[in-house]
Structures are given as structure tokens and as C-alpha cells.
Design a protein around this nucleic acid. Structure first.
Lengths: 222, 222
DNA sequence: AGCGAAAATTTACACCGTAAGCTTACGCTG
DNA sequence: CAGCGTAAGCTTACGGTGTAAATTTTCGCT
């Protein structure tokens, strides 16, 4: 076995920062961010936990890294194009990506996020608003408003405990815990769900369009 | 020292679920939720960690408990009163309470939250919208939209790394990391901050009022 | 072939939540 | 007041965490 390194596939591929981060994203998708440990990540890569430290400084750097990988998956708005549809597309893409990586939103809203993909994403967002005529300050307010909706809506949706098709059935099982005399309105809404009059499905674009329409009016009157 | 139990204050007060939860809230406020451990909480109460388990089943139950304590601090809207100002007051109070307990929002958006204070809070919210003429479904959408803003805005504000008065100075120190040729708009906005033309302060009621106005229009045309 | 550097591993430590079993303290009854 | 039963608190232990330090293995190159 004259070991030609290129051909021998029994030899495991060497580690690298990129391979570590990619594996971390996949593992977090599979088992959740709370269960992701250095030891499990090492195991996934066929390596001891401490070997990872040759390629990343610590676990925090891994978390920063996988957030930036996720940020890189989001469709960026194009400055100069119609701002409303671009911001709408950006928001929808962000929501979709964050639903694909259910652990990512929590990390984003609790870390610095200064990776290159995140900076590019933010720069394009501000740029799209600026080119549409927003001042820097108004662009900041608009960006903050839209991102509040993206993060808040996504977190609530991820935290909702029932699948849409189970919801009516689930309501029947917990209705006794919210008696009408103590919680009349919560009880009433649950009955609407039980009776099939309300499916409880939330539309990401409902509140988003309220915000965009309001921002548009704000832009016109300035 | 004829030990009259009522008078002897050298004897430590016995533990109770209530005392454990109150101490947990204070400790989380002081050292953050990530640093809150059973051992530290025990220490704070002059007790060993394992003694806590006599009064709570496990740490998860403590987290559920302190979330409900926080929920109990939020001003509840009054069904029948003007829905817009009630919902505005509710949202502002929630934001204020969540800023007082910086760890709470994360817990709320990642747990079931079926404690009595939270149920009461939710019931009053739905009730306020229902009495104003919203259908159950529309009340659900409106509630979700407003709460998305509350959680998203609060998390972003808590995660912002600079105090308002440091912001301009901080921008000067990181401006080199976002060169104009790579991130033109982010660079431009930072210059606005550095030059004192934009303070970066976000107003909770800016996006909230966009939502409430949009919801009002939605209510009128139905 | 052998050497220097890079990569990977081993061992160890302080911390975490909590299960199981033990000891202490209390409240009540005789 | 004695004594007993139970509740409250404590000790010990286990498997998990991130990671510092020291060691061994592997690789690339002369």
C-alpha cells in the first residue's frame, strides 16, 4: 500500500476550521444547540474533543462561526431595486433560513454577530433602504422594526408546541386546564380551535406588511 | 434561650417553593441566567443545593416558576376599554418588565409558559381585542404581531453592546473593521453615529404604533 | 532516513444537574 | 415532658460539560 495520500480514502480527511464549523451546523440541526458539545462534535468528526481546539479557539468561536454560516444562507436585498419588495424578500428568506436552523435565532439575538456574511447582510439591508430615500436614522429604525418582527415571529413559531394538524386535538386535551370562569377568552379561543373555526396558523407576512406599509407612508411624508 | 420559635431570629427561616423562586429571580437578575446554578442558589439561601429539591422538582420547574413571577409583573390590558391604548400600555409594560429581568425574554420564547400569571396575561390580551370587535382569529393574529415586536425588539435592545453615550466613541474604534469599499452603507451609518448625527436610539413605540395603526385599519374594514 | 513542526491525544480540573441514602429537626400525641 | 413519625436538609456519588497543560503521533521536507 504505497500510500498515495490523494487516493487512499481510508485515511480520514484532515480537520480544518471550515470542516469543524460545517459539522457543527449539521450536528446542531440534528440534536439541537443545547446538546451540541465539543465531545459530540469531535465524535461526529472521528476525532477527540481536544483536537478541535487546534482549529478553533473555543466553543464561543464555533457558535460565532455557525451563526455566520447561517447568515450566509439568507438572500440579501439589492440596493436600487424596489425597496419594499426587496425588504419583503429579505425578511421572508431570513425567516425561512431561521426555521431551517431552529437554534440560530437564539444565538443571533444573544451574540455580537460581526462575521463577514452578517456584515454583508446588514450592509445590503441599510443600502437598500438608503437608496430608496430613507435617511440613515430612518433606515436604522426601519431595519430594527423589520428585524424585531423576524426574530420575534420566528421564535414564537419555533416555540409553538403543536403541529398545525394536531392543534385542534391538543386543544381538546388541555381545555380543562383553562376553565371558562377563570380564563373566559382563552377558553373561547380554544373552543374556536377545537371546533375547526380557527386553525391558529400565523402568517409571517401579515405583520410584516403592516410594518412595510407604515414605513412607506412614513417615507412619503418626509 | 428557651427557644420560642417565633422570636428566635437566629434560626433561619425555613425554605419554601416561594422563597426559592423569589431568590432565583433576584439571583438571575444579579448574575444572569446562564450563571444561575442550583449550588449558587442554595448558597444564596444558606442551604445545600440538594435541599432545594425538597421544594421544586428540578431546575426546569424553577425556570418555569421565575418566568411566571415575571409575567405577574406585567400590566394587564382591561377588556372593554379603548383597545389601542390598552394594548399599547400592555406592550410598553411588558417591554419595561423584560428589560428589568434581562434573562426573562429568552426563557419565555423557549418554554411552554402555562403558569397562572401568564394565562391571566394572555386571557386579558385576547379579551381586550375581542371586546373591541376583533374575531378570535384576528385577535390571534394581532396578539402574535404585537408579541413578535415585544420579544424581537427587547432581545435586540438587550443584545446591543454599547450604552447610548458610548456609542459614538465605540463607532470610532470599530470603523476600521468595516471599510467603505467593502461595506459602504454600514460604514456610512457608522460615520453618522461618530459625527453625532444619529444616536442609534431605538424607540419601542415606533414599530408598535405602525402595527397598531395597521391593525386599526384592518379592524375598520371588516 | 531523519528531523522539525503540526496535529491529535491523554490526562486532569472545576463546574453542572440530580439520584440515592442518611442525618437532623420539628410537631404532635400520650 | 418523653418519644415517635415525618418532613427537611445534608452527604456522597455519577455522568456530563468546557478547556488548560503535557504528551504522543503524524506529516512534509530535506
Amino acid at each position: 500500500m504505497a500510500g498515495n495520500r490523494e487516493e487512499s480514502s481510508k485515511q480520514r480527511e484532515p480537520l480544518s476550521r471550515e470542516r469543524v464549523l460545517q459539522a457543527a451546523v449539521r450536528l446542531a440541526d440534528e440534536i439541537g444547540i443545547d446538546s451540541l458539545s465539543m465531545r459530540k462534535l469531535g465524535q461526529k468528526l472521528g476525532v477527540e474533543a481536544m483536537s478541535l481546539y487546534r482549529h478553533v479557539a473555543n466553543k464561543d468561536e464555533i457558535l460565532d462561526g455557525i451563526v455566520d454560516i447561517v447568515a450566509g444562507e439568507i438572500e440579501v436585498p439589492i440596493p436600487g431595486q424596489d425597496w419594499k419588495s426587496e425588504m419583503r424578500r429579505r425578511a421572508g428568506s431570513a425567516h425561512e433560513v431561521l426555521m431551517r436552523h431552529p437554534w440560530a435565532t437564539m444565538l443571533i439575538v444573544s451574540r455580537a454577530n460581526v462575521g463577514p456574511a452578517m456584515l454583508r447582510y446588514v450592509d445590503a439591508t441599510i443600502g437598500c433602504l438608503r437608496e430608496a430615500g430613507f435617511s440613515y436614522a430612518m433606515a436604522d429604525y426601519a431595519w430594527n422594526a423589520i428585524d424585531s418582527h423576524i426574530y420575534g415571529f420566528t421564535l414564537q413559531k419555533l416555540n409553538f408546541p403543536f403541529a398545525p394538524e394536531e392543534y385542534a386535538e391538543a386543544a381538546k386535551s388541555y381545555i380543562d386546564l383553562i376553565p371558562a370562569d377563570q380564563y373566559p377568552y382563552l377558553n373561547g379561543m380554544s373552543h374556536e380551535v377545537m371546533d375547526g373555526n380557527h386553525d391558529g396558523l400565523q402568517d409571517f407576512y401579515f405583520a410584516l406588511d403592516l410594518l412595510l406599509d407604515g414605513l412607506e407612508k412614513n417615507l412619503e411624508t418626509s
